[in-house]
């Protein structure tokens, strides 16, 4: 018959595991940032970045954690990537010094060290965005957050949708303002698996 202490340890082990911070790797195939910007005051243009990597550290018991997302600026895509006639596309222009300056700044980085919970729900993420060599505070609202088993392979995972707005001129991206709006709406869908 097992000793009482062994039984207690066995019972407490899952709880201590839950309390420990868990590191999650961002699933690059199912996580990417999208953005929208008003063009000429007429319509909303949509774009995305195809390549993002990152880590999320989450301690659900302590309601703390951190997030780091690295976005490859050259992976910007707005549906005008390569033209059959060889002329420069809108995505070429977005990668140039007028906008994301990908040759000089290959990555933009969002780093957060403060996750704001309301009860069990993750409400917002506070952190800094580094874009074009400029770092500014950016708060992202969490519109959905869920952890649980993958429906097919039952692996544990977490997912979240976050969104926020930045002014691109805060980061020195001034070209075309105000015809191409200053306010950029960001939305990022993230799926992540334990390390």
């Amino acid at each position: 018959m097992p000793r009482l202490s062994t039984v207690l340890l066995a019972l407490l082990a899952p709880l201590s595991a839950m309390a420990a911070p868990q590191t999650y790797n961002v699933d690059a195939l199912h996580s990417y940032p999208t953005f929208t910007v008003n063009h000429l005051g007429m319509a909303t243009m949509h774009g995305r970045f195809d390549k993002m990597s990152g880590k999320v550290v989450l301690d659900q018991a302590a309601k703390t954690g951190s997030l780091e997302a690295r976005i490859a600026t050259a992976s910007v895509s707005t549906g005008d990537g390569k033209r059959a006639d060889g002329t420069r596309s809108r995505d070429d222009h977005l990668r140039a010094a007028d906008f994301f300056n990908s040759a000089e700044f290959p990555e933009m980085v969002y780093k957060s060290t403060k996750l704001n919970f309301n009860g069990e729900a993750l409400e917002s993420v506070e952190g800094t965005l580094t874009l074009l060599g400029v770092t500014k505070p950016v708060k992202l609202n969490v519109t959905s957050f869920k952890c649980g088993p993958h429906p097919f392979n039952k692996k544990p995972m977490c997912g979240a949708n976050v969104e926020g707005t930045i002014k691109r001129t805060d980061f020195g991206m001034k070209f075309g303002v105000p015809a191409i709006a200053d306010d950029i709406k960001l939305a990022i869908g993230i799926e992540a698996y334990p390390e």
């Binding site: 033209r83 006639d85 060889g86 420069r88 222009h93 977005l94 075309g176």
Partner: peptide, 8 residues
Amino acid sequence: FTAGTPST
């Protein structure tokens, strides 16, 4: 001949 005009 190797490029063209950009559009935004």
